[in-house]
Amino acid sequence: MVRQMVGDDVPLAWCGGNPEGGLGTSVEAILAAIDRAWSDRGVAILVDLGGAETNSEMAVEMLDGDRAHKVVVCNAPVVEGAVMAATEASGGASLAEVRATAEELSPA
């Protein structure tokens, strides 16, 4: 959906499933996805339910210090958040602006 609505300019990566491919998330897969989506402007992560958020935060902490502060986990709905974040990012916005736009979608 992000590709269709925003185009190919924004680096994008996704992952899902536990290390055996079942329901859940894998920290290793999240780290690999951060690598694929990496640019010097940083990475905004969108997640669905609890474990995805906790595992993403863990993955961010496992990055080295210079990269860790350029990755944020957004408190936003995954589909709408991803589309809005990518739209904002494609216009050249900073990571903080991208995150703020995604998080506007969350009820306060």
Binding site: G17, N18, P19, E20, G22, G24, T25, S26, V27, E28, G50, G51, T54, N55, E57, M58, M62
Partner: peptide, 10 residues
């Protein structure tokens, strides 16, 4: 952390 896959891993 690397193998559990749910919230209990972290």
């Amino acid at each position: 952390v690397m193998t559990v896959g749910g919230a209990s891993g972290p």
